[in-house]
Design a protein around this nucleic acid. Structure first.
Lengths: 249, 249
DNA sequence: CTTTATTGTGTCTAATTGACGCAATAAAGG
DNA sequence: CCTTTATTGCGTCAATTAGACACAATAAAG
């Protein structure tokens, strides 16, 4: 038996996760540095034969981050034939990282399901590489390394989806610490959207959604006027997720 | 070899299409009546090993409707283990519709990719059943037959997706005849959304998108004042699809 | 104690949305 | 042939929302 019991898995199907965090006013993504290749990959894995695909995504996420109960959403299946065209398995076989059985498994045509996860950066204490990778690190979205296969495209699609969902879904509960300031929330929005927003209009709009609670406290320590600390009204937040925020029509 | 050369296909992966048309002010969906079962299924099929998944969807659509170049969009992968739990293959084997080889193929665990297509009802001249079905017909969305497996859920998800996309994407080019009246377009929107809209505000909003051209002509023949005929400005329409109509933020 | 950058609140205008009035019109019916 | 009727096209008005910006309050730094 190989390091992976390939018989356990659904053939030709994989899951890749775009795991996003927010730190120092930047969007970060968790990436794996592949062994013996100058490329990075999205955390991914295979789907067990007796496992729901959604569950596989949750498992993969837990394996890399140690987190469960996080926001995870399927966004696309990438199913082009030519998406597997990189002879990485050859290198793995050469280097003795995989045996022939696993090599053959990896060599088949794969379609992959993309999920994106929003996680609180600081809660990921020890990002863990998998068998095919030598490290697992947060990378800045604005300064990406060379990505493997079509993983750049997958990331791009996740980002597009997220941007669009910002228009009708709340965001932040899974990406920010439990308490945060309005400027922090705004910075998150601005980073995702890639543009600046008017501070005052942003506050008015956010408060209008009714998903924020102003705790009585302020964030002190920084220079200048100390901003209020907010937290999400989880009940209303969930309702916003389900019903949409300003649906139009 | 079975009626299907199963070796040609990617194992465990299928495509199902929600093919929607609009006729007599109702949304119609193309469904297949399964052989020897009182259930109906979405038009679907398998993905060839050397075939892009998107291409497979296009092929399946062409096989059932004869149409190509139609609007087709992937919306979700359905990957739960329990979605295959119906012993239809047993019946097929019993009745001699499939042989043992094909039976074994069908008996594996499948995940399916959902696509929805918007087609002009009248252009589908001879809906064609596949090997597993005895007929292929338009059914009214408001009066659905008993659906096979999770196909009801798949349809529901397609409908949800469509509803949401109405908020930021134009629709109708693929669903209506080349020329149509404003009330017809409104009826389409109302049907998809499942609610009535104000006639006058609808017109104002639609014209505001700038994707409609009023031809000089009117639809005559009906009683009452004859409405103008419109057509889509395909250039602007495509741009609306790409950039979104009223993106928010 | 002044300076400085930032935050909280409010205001004003323009644009959009929602509700509805009214005249024009095409066929049907007496 | 003229009235009736349901429908279409266009317009108006108020309410709401969005965009731009002014100003006072504030916390730390100098």
């Amino acid at each position: 038996m190989s390091v992976l019991n390939v018989d356990k898995f659904q053939p030709g199907l994989s899951v890749d996760c775009v795991i996003l965090g927010f730190h120092h006013n930047e969007l970060k993504i968790l990436l794996l540095k592949l062994k013996d290749l100058e490329r990075w990959a999205l955390p991914g894995g295979f789907v067990e034969k007796e496992e729901d695909v959604d569950k596989a995504a949750v498992r993969i996420l837990r394996e890399r981050t140690g987190l469960k109960n996080i926001f995870l959403q399927q966004f696309h299946l990438f199913g082009n034939v030519d998406r597997n065209e990189e002879a990485y398995a050859d290198i793995l076989l050469e280097k003795g990282i995989v045996d022939k059985e696993l090599y053959d498994w990896l060599d088949q045509r794969f379609v992959t399901v993309g999920y994106y996860a929003l996680v609180e950066y600081s809660r990921v204490e020890a990002p863990t590489p998998d068998y095919f990778s030598e490290s697992c690190e947060w990378c800045s979205l604005s300064n990406l390394p060379n990505l493997w296969l079509d993983h750049g495209r997958i990331l791009e699609k996740a980002h597009e989806t997220l941007k669009r969902q910002l228009n009708y879904q709340p965001i932040g509960l899974n990406l920010l610490p439990p308490r945060f300031t309005m400027p922090e929330l705004q910075a998150l929005y601005e980073t995702i959207l890639g543009k600046t927003l008017d501070r005052r209009n942003f506050q008015r709009k956010m408060m209008g959604y009714g998903i924020l609670i102003r705790t009585g406290e302020r964030r002190t320590g920084g220079a200048h006027k100390s901003p209020w600390l907010y937290e999400f009204d989880e009940e209303k937040y969930r309702q916003g997720l389900a019903d949409g925020l300003n649906a139009g029509w």
